[in-house]
Measured scan of single mutants.
Amino acid sequence: GATAVSEWTEYKTADGKTLYYNNRTLESTWEKPQELK
């Protein structure tokens, strides 16, 4: 079967924080998503 690919993209901001963006739900979060833990 196909492996579930994470929908989350990780961005590094200018101040060194990490922003997570979900390509499916168009949601963005500063918290690390469950799927990435």
Results as ranks from 00 to 15, higher is better:
residue 1 G to T: 13
residue 16 G to L: 00
residue 10 E to Y: 04
residue 23 N to M: 09
residue 26 L to R: 13
residue 23 N to T: 15
residue 30 W to A: 10
residue 1 G to M: 13
residue 24 R to I: 15
residue 4 A to V: 14
residue 36 L to D: 07
residue 17 K to Q: 08
residue 23 N to V: 14
residue 23 N to L: 09
residue 35 E to R: 03
residue 23 N to E: 11
residue 18 T to A: 03
residue 25 T to H: 01
residue 4 A to I: 12
residue 24 R to E: 09
residue 1 G to W: 09
residue 25 T to E: 02
residue 27 E to R: 03
residue 4 A to R: 12
residue 21 Y to A: 02
residue 7 E to F: 07
residue 2 A to T: 14
residue 7 E to M: 05
residue 21 Y to N: 02
residue 11 Y to V: 14
residue 17 K to W: 04
residue 2 A to M: 13
residue 13 T to G: 09
residue 10 E to L: 05
residue 29 T to N: 04
residue 13 T to P: 01
residue 22 N to L: 01
residue 33 P to K: 01
residue 33 P to Q: 02
residue 1 G to R: 14
residue 30 W to Y: 15
residue 13 T to I: 04
residue 13 T to Y: 10
residue 26 L to M: 15
residue 12 K to M: 10
residue 8 W to I: 02
residue 36 L to I: 09
residue 36 L to Q: 07
residue 32 K to W: 03
residue 20 Y to R: 01
residue 28 S to A: 09
residue 2 A to P: 14
residue 5 V to P: 11
residue 34 Q to K: 10
residue 33 P to I: 02
residue 34 Q to W: 10
residue 2 A to W: 06
residue 4 A to M: 13
residue 35 E to N: 10
residue 27 E to T: 05
residue 26 L to D: 09
residue 2 A to R: 11
residue 25 T to M: 02
residue 21 Y to M: 08
residue 11 Y to Q: 07
residue 12 K to V: 15
residue 5 V to G: 10
residue 18 T to R: 03
residue 35 E to A: 11
residue 19 L to M: 12
residue 4 A to F: 09
residue 22 N to Y: 02
residue 23 N to R: 09
residue 21 Y to T: 06
residue 29 T to G: 03
residue 5 V to K: 14
residue 3 T to A: 13
residue 5 V to A: 14
residue 36 L to A: 07
residue 36 L to S: 08
residue 19 L to R: 06
residue 15 D to L: 04
residue 32 K to C: 15
residue 10 E to M: 06
residue 21 Y to K: 06
residue 30 W to I: 07
residue 28 S to L: 15
residue 34 Q to T: 14
residue 6 S to W: 08
residue 25 T to Q: 01
residue 11 Y to D: 02
residue 18 T to V: 12
residue 30 W to D: 10
residue 3 T to Q: 12
residue 16 G to F: 00
residue 7 E to A: 06
residue 32 K to Y: 04
residue 22 N to T: 00
residue 8 W to G: 00
residue 10 E to N: 01
residue 4 A to D: 12
residue 18 T to Y: 08
residue 29 T to R: 10
residue 35 E to K: 05
residue 26 L to S: 10
residue 36 L to G: 05
residue 12 K to D: 04
residue 31 E to T: 07
residue 30 W to P: 08
residue 8 W to K: 01
residue 13 T to F: 12
residue 34 Q to E: 15
residue 12 K to I: 13
residue 3 T to H: 13
residue 37 K to D: 15
residue 32 K to A: 08
residue 25 T to Y: 03
residue 23 N to W: 12
residue 18 T to W: 05
residue 33 P to N: 01
residue 34 Q to N: 14
residue 31 E to M: 04
residue 31 E to N: 05
residue 15 D to M: 05
residue 34 Q to Y: 09
residue 15 D to R: 02
residue 3 T to K: 13
residue 6 S to L: 09
residue 15 D to T: 07
residue 12 K to L: 13
residue 2 A to V: 13
residue 1 G to H: 14
residue 24 R to Y: 10
residue 37 K to R: 12
residue 8 W to V: 01
